[in-house]
Design a protein around this nucleic acid. Structure first.
Lengths: 200, 200, 200, 200
DNA sequence: CATGAATGAGTGTTCATTCAT
DNA sequence: GATGAATGAACACTCATTCAT
């Protein structure tokens, strides 16, 4: 007979994750102390430790949540039947959600996570898994495009998917370092790339 | 009148940087203690502090060195007069030097650096500058290609350069997370992209 | 008008004490968390705190219970009229009940308690009282033996009693550190000691 | 080329051990914080950690030192050729050095150590080894006495040695709990025990 | 009476940095 | 210049205890 419903528990978890995200986005993972997170969440140390086992676990939870969100975003974006339109929509979603404001903050944390993959095997697994889903979805779209003779079959669908993601990730890095970069011009290059994949 | 010749000084500096690189590649920046670096370099704490002011300074020095190296690599690769060949050569250099063995180790450290840009303004400046040089060089090549009507003029040269670098960076990330990725297939996609930029 | 019958209350108390004993025997007093005890007892924190005021109080309760048990054991063992036989019987009881299995586990906890006497005056009082009873009983038997001219009167009865207990305690320690010690051979020495006290 | 001679290093170690002993004797192992030890030693945390790896390690070092000291004490006491005199001398040493003042303080710490054997295997090993030496020495003396027909051969030498040590340990406990115990009367009982072992 | 989520002071330990030699 | 012992602020994490429900 739990005094706290599982919804309330989920709420608390979310509250803590949100606080941690705020802190990590503000000061970076290694420069954030757990005391910062406790203060931001308005909760005590002990309480937070009832939901997360360690600082690393907190980062992992944030990563997982982000991966869920990304999976959902790419899922929604690729609902269209038309494979070419789907790819374009995915890219637009990326440009809209990832490269701006709050989305950019989350990606800032993502970068911290990526840097941690080297040391923390759980983070590595999570990052791998987080990328594999979207990549497989993209590859699936591309394969459909190839089957329908809409996209060139001279290139490996997985390799294309990888490249698309690489462009996303790489653009992200540049946006993080130079927020005033001309994203539109870069988006045009991406669209050119997509067109180059289409059969005539 | 220095007690130590400036060559000897440079040697020591290099020795320390090498040790730090080994440690950072092995355990990551935040998991490496300076005591680890002292041990790896076979030097005392005080001695190292005669050459570097702080742990961050060490990371900065490594970043600077890497940027020099990258600038040189891209410079050599783009010596050809033919702009299209130059671009292809740059890509090949990237694939050969960055995605393999020792090069990959250095890029692993680069990722740590990138993650630090968020916090450390000096690192941020260094990373920006490290990217600006190569990007300007690439843009220059592209502009030459456009002027010679070898490359499409419908796209902004800087945006293309940015995209090329984004592909490099993004591919790097994937290689770090999944070392057994099919780099050749991905390289084919990149070449396709280059060809799509050429005028007919 | 108590909501819970006092039998039920005693049951709960016993349940908690048993759980604590299990935990303390398993991991030691300081390495056991109260959360461990709650889990072992299958009760909540609040419930346990209705019966015991603190962790120390729990240890005290265990000590008291053990002292009661010891008092009873030595009481039963010394019921014989013959003082020499009584002493021997006490020793046999000690060897049978204290140095084996479950008894040894309880003594393991006793050792933890002894170590706590230094800090906790209540524990100290309890341990003193726990020893005084048996010692007085032993001294009483010995005095009877001396009065009946069965035991030497050249030695102080209290001092003999102390020595007997010292041998018990000391043997216990050795048994705890080296469970495969030869208890029979040591028991023979003890019997020799007892015989040496008898008059001819 | 160490700036600090190994003697100075040993001094520091001793200084820290002494401080820890003072603290542990004053407040017990678990009630002493390392900050207490740092303050008592007049040294910083980092410095202490250059000499000891953990709080447990400190306790272990204290135990080892005590064992060395005990080994030496019993060694000196048993130098006499006459085995019976040697045993008596050992007992006298015990009564003089262990049951009084500073010696008692050290034994108070010993008790803490004993209680820790249950949890910490290194402590257990140390305590075992610390007891084995003296016990072997005592057994050796007894065997010499048996060979020379000065001591009864009806009892196992090791068992006698164990019993002697048990009496020491047990008396110690009583002294710790009741400092005003009559040690002389108890010593008389011990001497009686020794005499009972002698052949006529 | 029982629950168990929340508390928060306290602890062992780390490690970048300094400075007397 | 080089040494390395010493520093000490900072940090992640624990756990006995409380109290609203």
């Amino acid at each position: 007979m739990p005094r706290i419903s599982s919804e309330r528990k989920a709420e608390r978890r979310a509250q803590i994750v949100a606080a941690a995200r705020t802190c990590f986005a503000r000061s970076g993972f290694h420069n954030t102390t757990l005391q910062d997170v406790f203060a931001e969440a308005g909760l005590s140390a002990g309480c937070v430790y009832n939901y997360f086992q360690s600082k690393d676990d907190l980062m992992l939870a944030i990563a997982e949540e982000r991966h869920d969100e990304e999976r959902q975003l790419i899922g929604e974006a690729s609902e269209t039947d038309d494979p070419v339109a789907a790819l374009r929509q995915v890219a637009r979603t990326f440009a809209d959600k990832y490269l701006k404001e709050d989305g950019l903050d989350r990606r800032r944390i993502a970068l911290q996570t990526w840097s941690e993959t080297h040391i923390n095997p759980f983070i590595l697994s999570s990052v791998r898994a987080g990328m594999d889903g979207p990549r497989a979805q993209l590859a699936q779209i591309i394969r459909r495009g190839q089957a329908a003779n809409r996209l060139t079959s001279t290139l490996d669908a997985d390799a294309i998917a990888h490249t698309v993601i690489a462009i996303f990730h790489g653009s992200l890095l540049q946006k993080l370092w130079k927020p005033d970069i001309d994203s539109d011009a870069q988006f045009a290059v991406f669209e050119h790339f997509l067109r180059s994949l289409e059969t005539e």
